[in-house]
Amino acid sequence: MIRALHPQSALAAFLLLAGTLPLAQSAPLDLQDGDRVVFVGGTFVERMQQFGYLETLLTVAHPDKHITFRNLGWSGDTVWGESRALFGTQADGFARLIKDVKEAKPTVLAICYGANEAHAGVAGQQRFIDGLNQLLNQLADTKARVVLLSPYAYRPGPPGAPSPEAYNSVLKSYCDAISKVAVKRNAQYVSLFDLLIVVEENVRRNERPVTENGIHFTQSGKRLAAFEIAKRLGVDVPELDFGKANEHLTKLRAAIHLKNELYFYRYRPQNETYLFLFRKHEQGNNAVEIPQFDPLVEEQEKVIAKLKTLRR
């Protein structure tokens, strides 16, 4: 993939654009025994399900604690739950978002929105912030600790794609606004604004690109990003080699992937039209199968717990 800017010079440009990068503004993520971390956001979050690096890192970083994760990322989603509306209105999408989060019983809520909303430009910022606040208000009764992950700046895409410059400068403004929401709400704010650029910087030695479209991470990108995110969350992560040689870690990550897959079948099943919506008179009887994924998820979590404690 052709890059318009060398990552290093891009980083310099970013720093210029960003002024000083905001650091974590509150206490680091202090995961407790029994915590249930729920992630919500767009494609960036959704793809964590299959790569599982961040979840793996957070799991092995707390070998003595039982921490579980639920990933509710949905491509193209926004604070208004736009991607979750299915046949309904945006309000239905939002209601679905709230319902799904609550059913996941979070004690820690990691929210990463803003990337898709920022396409609306500066003019859309207030609406986004209002939406974010509304989302947090609606979820306040979960009593979960909130972590606001900022979206990250894009890199140049393939030839023909618009330069990300204008988008990134808007995004910067969105990120600042998210950090203010975090301060006001006493939530942890984690800036990922320069995540892609930093990760790209780190990959120089490596052949594989960290992004192929300038907006999403590849698998190796996800791996590098996971270390960076964990660090910024304030989690003390051990040096880990995710190479194939590290069979144990490979197994753990595969177990996490499988758990996420099972949970995906549970929370976002295919054929919803027939199982739960307006054609449920046809296949509604099979909706009983869907909760049957719950014990399978739990079983898989036991496998994860075992692999985690056997680690060292």
Binding site: G42, T43, W74, S75, G76, D77, E82, S83, A85, L86, F87, A115, N116, H119, Y154, G157, P158, A161, P162, P164, N213, G214, I215, H216, T273
Partner: peptide
């Protein structure tokens, strides 16, 4: 007919 798609691209979100 029953599919609702939301795809993030470098050109914006295509729905």
């Amino acid at each position: 007919i029953y599919i609702h798609s939301h795809v993030e691209t470098p050109y914006g979100v295509k729905r």
